[in-house]
């Protein structure tokens, strides 16, 4: 079975879009609609994800706070985390980087871009 990817976004459309693309490429996908749910799952799961993709603006806990929380956990220290941003959100991208994000994806995310970025942050071997 492929790597697990945790997708965190409050939009069901965005979650479905990413999930469909990722599953087509043999990833297992776990989705969460905000940071709190994502974090709860991450703490409880026996199979931590190989990658986290998170939106920035979400109710309850936003993406930036999620990054901070994940980086504070032993098994989140070195985890690749990508943030979903829109083209104009350069300031959020830099803030996310500062907080420990690995990189970002610009919405709308094309399948080929998504996979190219994943290939860069996730060694397949």
């Amino acid at each position: 079975m492929g790597h697990t990817v945790l997708v965190v976004d409050d939009s069901a459309t965005m979650r479905l879009s990413l999930k469909t693309t990722l599953e087509m490429h043999q990833f297992q996908v776990q989705t969460a609609e905000n940071g709190v749910i994502a974090l709860d799952w991450f703490r409880a799961t026996h199979q931590p994800p190989a990658l986290v993709i998170t939106d920035i603006h979400m109710p309850e806990m936003d993406g930036l706070a999620l990054i901070r929380e994940l980086r504070a956990l032993p098994r989140g220290r070195f985890l690749p985390i990508l943030v979903l941003t829109t083209e104009s959100q350069e300031d959020y991208r830099q803030e996310a980087r500062r907080l420990g994000a690995t990189g970002w994806l610009i919405k709308p995310v094309r399948g080929s871009d998504l996979l190219a970025v994943i290939d860069r942050v996730l060694p397949h071997h």
Partner: peptide, 15 residues
Amino acid sequence: ALFRAMHTLKGNSGL
């Protein structure tokens, strides 16, 4: 809430 909803709408429409 208004901003978030608008932001999500825009992000989704871009698909």
